[in-house]
Amino acid sequence: MAETQPAPIERRSLRAKPFSKADRAFFKSATWAANSSIVLVSLIFIFLMWRSWPAFESQGVDYIFGSTWDNNPENLVMQIGPMLWGSILVSTIGVVLAVPMAISLAYFIVFMANDRFGKIATVMVDLLAALPSVVLGLWGLLIFSPVAAGWAEMIYQGLGFIPIFDNSSGNFLRSPFIAGWVVAVMIVPIIASVTREIFSQLDRDLISASLALGAGRWSTFRRVILPTSGGGIVGGVLLGLGRALGETVAIFFVLNLVFEVNWFNILEDQGGSVASMILAKFGEAGQDEVAGLMAAGVVLFVVTLFVNMIASFIVAKAQPWRK
């Protein structure tokens, strides 16, 4: 071979620039459309911030942590502490109830059902996801609430000595417990479809190997499936959590919004939800109070954005094949 000179070879620029006018218009409109989503998110943030700034300014830190809402125009006090905590409490209950159902459903579809049953169950998950929240609210208020109140009462009778199951009012309707159930119904399909996706992408050889080695379903699940797909499932759960935090109409019908923090008495008929509160107060709010509701919107936006970003990051990381 001839002597190899380490002299760097010139690398040419390979910018594949569109040559024709139609191409340039094509790429430009696609770019423009895509970047409009950046504009959209910024606009949402800017306008909500702008309209809500007076409320943040007049209420200060207590807007988040205080627990009074007085719409007397002379002395407007707006604090969303109980609503914010209520959102977290209801969402947590929803997630706790939804996770076993969703993971079981996904496990059933991927690892147990034959193709036909699996397909039916998949369609079911999609259908559940397509149910509008106002319809679930109607169902939750008129059909489910009485039933769940019965469960709540029974839990109270059996386990009322445990503080979280205490109930001093004797009224079991419109409690965080019931709202949590309704939210669970909403987020089961989200968690289930992410989990199903992740389960179905698992390395089949790994699972066959595990079963061939004589491991049962349970140990295969615990030692092979969970460790490899755990991250993705957590991401799916967070996506569900984001949806739960933003749920508005359904919770509005089945939860009693009270401006007094209910820390953990989940059977008590008082709770909170930022999104539902916005809806509840919006109709009768004066201009200054609307600023306060906008501020609640900002808080909600930031919280859900944060949860969603983490969730999609985790899901994306757990699915390296989707790039």
Binding site: S37, V41, L43, L48, T304, L305
Partner: peptide, 27 residues
């Protein structure tokens, strides 16, 4: 900006619907 756009679209999918309404109301 593809990954940015993808992330933002993902973020929008979690946008609470009432906030979308408030945004148009504010605007």
């Amino acid at each position: 900006t593809r990954s940015t756009v993808r992330t933002l679209i993902q973020a929008l999918s979690g946008l609470p619907s009432v906030v979308a309404g408030l945004f148009i109301y504010a605007m």
